[in-house]
């Protein structure tokens, strides 16, 4: 046990750090992109407050196409963009670019789903009171959907954590990469198991924290 920590402790610590970094940063930027995308998808639906059926159809298709690209292919595809943004195409920072772009459409759909759950009557009441579309979005839709958005955030974060395992292909490190390269390929089973356990702990931690926040933020259950 002692020997194990001595040999792999630093490697694993680095791996945890890299995994966290490659999970939290892309999640943040995926929401920066995906939240407005989700709002657009919702309000431009037929019957929405800014209905634009053709735009909605085209935009919806774009989102679907982005979601269909296998992550590995997407990573390679956008290398020029990654270089432009991160200065390089390799490493954990660079990997955040394809991670963000892959996650943004997923987040958009989750946000859309959260907004769809809001009672139509609440939106109509706001319209009756003379609210502008912007006010409806910011003061009704995004307010009433907060608990649902937080639960979606939990799901999105863990999904992105799953993607980070593939980023080893661009030298990004992380726990998944360690498990695969050192644990599986080089038959160091104990290392592989430890890495998996660490990943499980990370997931449980993230899930637990977000669920707690969502519950406490929901004013309907007081």
């Amino acid at each position: 046990m002692q020997a194990f920590i001595e040999e792999y402790g630093l490697l694993l610590l680095g791996g945890v750090g890299e995994t966290l970094f490659m999970t939290l940063v892309p999640t943040l930027f995926a929401y920066v992109l995906g939240l407005p995308m989700g709002v657009l998808l919702t309000i431009t639906k037929p019957g929405g407050i800014a209905a634009a059926p053709r735009f909605n159809a085209v935009f919806g298709w774009l989102v679907n196409i982005l979601r269909s690209l296998p992550f590995m292919i997407l990573m390679i595809f956008i290398i020029p963009l990654t270089r432009f943004i991160a200065g390089t195409s390799i490493g954990a920072t660079a990997a955040c670019v394809p991670l963000t772009i892959a996650a943004a459409p997923f987040v958009a759909r989750m946000v859309e789903q959260s907004l769809e759950e809001i009672d139509r009557g609440t939106v109509e009441a706001a319209r009756c009171m003379g609210a502008t579309n912007w006010q409806i979005v910011t003061r009704v839709l995004l307010v009433e959907s907060v608990p649902s958005l937080l639960r979606g955030l939990s799901i999105s974060t863990i999904t992105i954590l799953g993607y980070t395992a593939i980023t080893g292909a661009v030298g990004a490190g992380g726990l998944g990469n360690i498990a695969f390269r050192f644990g599986y390929q080089r038959y160091q089973k104990d290392l592989m198991y430890v890495t998996v356990v660490l990943l499980i702990l990370l997931v449980c931690l993230i899930q637990g924290v977000f669920n707690l926040i969502a519950r406490r933020a929901d004013k309907r259950s007081r």
């Binding site: 390679i76 290398i79 390089t88 195409s89 390799i90 660079a94 080893g168 292909a169 661009v170 030298g171």
Partner: peptide, 13 residues
């Protein structure tokens, strides 16, 4: 360490 097939495309970095 990178995916072997990705090395050529990563040379600029």
């Amino acid at each position: 360490p990178l995916e072997a097939a990705n090395l050529p495309i990563s040379l600029p970095d």
